[in-house]
């Protein structure tokens, strides 16, 4: 792939998504799209470590929540400006990623052991956030309503949408750049065969630690967006398993280890989730909580059975098959 098409495709997707709010004034749709963007950013973070590095984390909530709480606490407890808090909150998320990475990868944890350790860290952080006074404990923490771009709060939802889209495009460009550099090649080599990578001079522990740090930073940025969008956090939201699950499912369904997989996966996952909720709602005359989770489970099973490389993997296989059939 040429350099122009590699980065151009990301920018084209950004432009197309950027034009969406011009076509609609619907607040319901805009809210959905903003939430979609936040999940897509978190999933892009997961994809860097899980999709490219083959290290499946079940606990990306640890990074998402640290970004979100960092944003809230730095503003409300330390009195920082929101834009100043943003890079610090992202750095805090990255630091949590680094610590988990150093501990887990130095101890040579792989596969399901690594997944369980990340899950455990996220759960410990959730329990801590639920009791510590700094995080507001079980009551949660509110970010004061100050609608002003200076405070990262916008009167117009569309502006927030474009800011969130900027985050997503930035994250996707970062992943694309990584794909095309030495670090990316080494990371993929670690995923494919750690011993062989090692024999070729790859410091596999250092590569994995760098990957989880970057991955955590991106997912923390999604947490920052969440905090500024909803202006309220509690432990179950920020460190809850829901975001670990969605950050993992979106790339797996869309196509792990591809730039656009997490975005496509988030769209399919959340889109079908909302449609199902609405449909079941009209059928039963009331909301059925958790019905979208049932659907996620079904999607995951279908994906593992029929498209182990996600939707994008399935598409490229079909395209290859067609070309083969024609020739």
């Amino acid at each position: 792939m040429s350099k122009a098409s590699a980065y151009g495709s990301v920018l084209a997707l950004g432009a197309a998504l950027g034009a969406l709010p011009l076509a609609t004034e619907s607040n319901v749709l805009l809210n959905f799209l903003i939430f979609l963007l936040i999940v897509a950013v978190a999933a892009t973070g997961w994809n860097l470590l899980g999709g490219y590095g083959g290290q499946f984390s079940f606990g990306h909530a640890a990074f998402f929540g640290t970004g979100a709480y960092g944003m809230a606490i730095l503003q409300e407890r330390a009195g920082l400006n929101a834009w100043a808090a943003l890079p610090i909150a992202i750095a805090l998320g990255a630091a949590v990623g680094r610590v988990i990475g150093v501990l887990a990868f130095r101890a040579r944890l792989r596969g399901s052991y690594f997944a369980l350790v990340t899950l455990a860290f996220a759960e410990v952080l959730r329990i801590l956030a639920n009791v510590l006074p700094m995080t507001g404990g079980a009551a949660g923490i509110l970010i004061r309503l100050r609608i002003d771009p200076w405070h990262f709060q916008f009167a117009d939802r569309r502006v927030f949408y474009w800011v969130a889209l900027g985050f997503l495009v930035g994250a996707l460009l970062l992943v694309r750049a990584m794909e095309r550099c030495r670090f990316g090649a080494w990371l993929v080599a670690v995923r494919e065969n750690e011993d062989a990578a090692c024999a070729l001079g790859v410091d596999t522990v250092a590569v994995k630690v760098a990957a989880i740090t970057l991955s955590a930073a991106i997912t923390a940025a999604a947490g920052c967006l969440y905090a500024q969008k909803f202006l309220y956090l509690d432990a179950a939201i920020a460190y809850g398993p829901w975001i670990s699950v969605e950050a993992l499912l979106a790339p797996v369904i869309g196509g792990a280890g591809t730039v656009f997989g997490p975005v496509l996966g988030a769209l399919v996952l959340l889109g079908l989730g909302e449609l199902t909720k609405a449909w079941i709602g009209t059928l039963t005359g009331g909301a059925v909580p958790g019905v979208d989770l049932v659907l996620f489970g079904v999607l995951l099973i279908l994906c593992v059975a029929f498209a182990p490389r996600g939707i994008l993997g399935l598409l490229s296989r079909l395209r290859f098959g067609l070309r083969w059939a024609r020739s």
């Binding site: 095309r180 550099c181 030495r182 090649a185 080494w186 993929v188 080599a189 995923r191 494919e192 065969n193 011993d195 062989a196 990578a197 024999a199 070729l200 001079g201 790859v202």
Partner: peptide
């Protein structure tokens, strides 16, 4: 080399060799 070959199965031949080449070349 490994007696039981250990290719990066998901990568192309070129990408496989490039992983080795990156040891002495930073640039893609």
């Amino acid at each position: 080399t490994f007696q039981i070959v250990q290719p990066f199965a998901g990568l192309s031949v070129r990408e496989n060799i490039a992983v080795g080449a990156y040891l002495r070349h930073r640039d893609r």
